[in-house]
């Protein structure tokens, strides 16, 4: 992961961790990399890494085991999914509907397109 300059690094770290939890790369109850590991691997200040991890701790997705490190909380995946679902509506559906309106697509036409999308994806 190289850091895009535009977005704060701690946010990028938080997002990368979230992706890992969702995709199963960091299963629940498993350990995520330590602050030191993040710091050394990406050549960033440990405080920056801590900031990113703290975001997830505050959201209840990670917890700290004294003397051991940071672990993925039980139910983190589900929590993330429902968080993402809310965001999904805002980031994708609202825009989709707006664009569809611009193209004079009706709701049933849009739904049909979506179903076709799922079928095409399953075939590939």
């Amino acid at each position: 992961m190289t850091f895009q300059e535009e977005r704060p690094i701690f946010l990028q770290i938080a997002e990368q961790l979230e992706e890992g939890i969702l995709s199963g790369a960091y299963p629940e109850e498993s350990q995520v990399p330590s602050i030191t590991e993040y710091s050394v691997t990406y050549k960033i200040n440990p405080a920056t890494a801590l900031k990113g991890i703290s975001l997830l701790v505050d959201a209840g997705l990670l917890f700290k085991k004294r003397g051991l490190g940071m672990f993925v909380a039980t139910g983190a995946k589900e929590k993330l999914k429902s968080q993402r679902r809310d965001l999904f509506y805002h980031n994708y559906i609202e825009k989709l509907v707006r664009e569809a309106r611009n193209l004079d697509l009706t709701a049933p036409e849009l739904t049909a397109m979506i179903e076709r999308g799922f079928q095409d994806a399953d075939r590939n």
Binding site: I35, T36, S39, V40, K43, I44, N45, P46
Partner: peptide, 14 residues
């Protein structure tokens, strides 16, 4: 250079 930064950060974190 790379080694130095990493070693410094590791030491600083610990």
């Amino acid at each position: 250079r790379d080694m130095f930064y990493r070693i410094l950060l590791e030491k600083y974190a610990e």
